Simulated scan of single mutants.
Amino acid sequence: MRKRLPSVSLSSYGIGSSTNKRIAIVALVVTVLLVTAATVAWVSGSGNGHPDQDPAAPAPAPAPTSSPSTSEAAPKPAAGSGSVPKPPQIAEPVAYAKAAAQMLWSYDTRDTSRDQQLAGMRAWMTGETTYSDWASVSGQVPDPVLWSRMADQDQHATASVTEGHFPSAFKAALADDPSAITRAYIYVVTVNGKQQIVWKKGGSGAEERAVTLAVQCRPSHDCSLAAIAPSVTQ
């Protein structure tokens, strides 16, 4: 019997209400890149897949009734980053977005605390505060209570990326005004992949994932993550 996997992964948590910074980033993507407002919707990351789950295995911790605070501050670097990989030195936006998506869809509560998870994710962000929407990224992490319950079940996830691409609306806007990108060098990239979740007593599940990211790649610099971006589909 096929059941939907409970929303327990990092990418399953909503982004929450808009902040001033998020509005500014939306305006940047929409105005600078000339993407019409009709195409903009926030990505929840929950996907529409129906994962396979072992009915005999205990279900992992349920999703919280409310999303984590979108204004949560990043933990101090001293917290370490546990199993979160360090950001790669990549100067091509699609390749960086694929690596970032894989990072966002992966976690291991067995050896990584929630603060370590956040610290590791924060290292992927752009240092330009004007364009960095940390709230949209940190909002993907479960609240402390749920993280603890996930840790009690030794819950961990790995991810594979199938493809990444510039959405057609982004490519069309860039073709209309190629110089627009030079203001902030922020690229919109949609990434598709699959997440595999495992917990105690043989419990497991898999689900298709998709996310649209805003990636900053200035010339002669490695790329960095700016935000979980507005969804500019296709």
Rank of each mutant, 00 (worst) to 15 (best):
L5I: 05
P6L: 02
V40C: 03
W42A: 09
A159H: 02
P77F: 04
P85K: 08
P178E: 11
A99G: 03
G164W: 02
A78Q: 14
S204K: 07
S69T: 13
P68W: 06
A100V: 00
P55M: 06
A41R: 13
A169K: 06
L104D: 01
A73K: 15
S220P: 05
G14R: 11
V145T: 04
L104H: 03
A180F: 05
M150N: 08
R22P: 00
T130P: 00
S7C: 11
A79W: 06
S67D: 15
Q116N: 12
A214H: 01
V43I: 10
A56E: 07
Q196W: 12
A172F: 12
P77C: 06
D115Q: 13
P75K: 02
L174Y: 12
S18K: 13
I90N: 11
I15H: 08
T65D: 15
P75W: 06
P88I: 01
P167D: 04
V94A: 05
S81D: 12
V211F: 08
S224D: 07
L118M: 15
L33D: 14
D111S: 15
A180W: 04
A210G: 10
P178D: 07
A184L: 08
N192F: 02
G203F: 04
G120V: 00
A157K: 02
G203I: 01
E128F: 07
H50S: 08
P87R: 03
T129R: 14
L118Y: 06
Q234A: 15
P58F: 04
S44E: 10
V26T: 11
K171S: 14
Q155D: 07
I197E: 13
R149M: 10
T129A: 12
Q117K: 11
Q196I: 08
D111R: 15
R22E: 13
W42S: 14
V145A: 10
D176E: 14
V215T: 05
S113R: 02
A157F: 04
V189M: 09
T39K: 13
E128M: 09
Q155G: 09
A73R: 14
A27Y: 12
K171D: 13
Q140D: 10
G205P: 06
A151Q: 12
T158C: 03
S204Q: 13
G80W: 01
T36A: 15
P219L: 04
K200H: 11
C217I: 01
A74E: 08
V161F: 03
D143F: 01
I90M: 03
S81L: 01
I228G: 03
G120W: 01
G127T: 09
M150L: 15
Y131N: 09
R114Q: 12
T36M: 12
S67M: 13
P77Y: 07
S11M: 14
A159W: 00
A135S: 09
W105G: 08
Q89F: 07
G193T: 00
Q153T: 03
L225A: 03
V35S: 04
G139A: 14
A78G: 12
R114N: 06
Q102C: 08
L118V: 02
R183V: 13
S18V: 14
I197D: 05
F170W: 10
A57T: 02
P51T: 03
D108A: 06
P64G: 15
Q155N: 10
V198H: 11
A38H: 15
M125E: 11
R149Q: 13
P88N: 05
V29R: 00
T190V: 07
W199Y: 06
I15W: 11
R209T: 09
P64V: 00
D222V: 09
A101P: 09
P85W: 04
Q116S: 08
S106L: 05
A159N: 07
D177K: 14
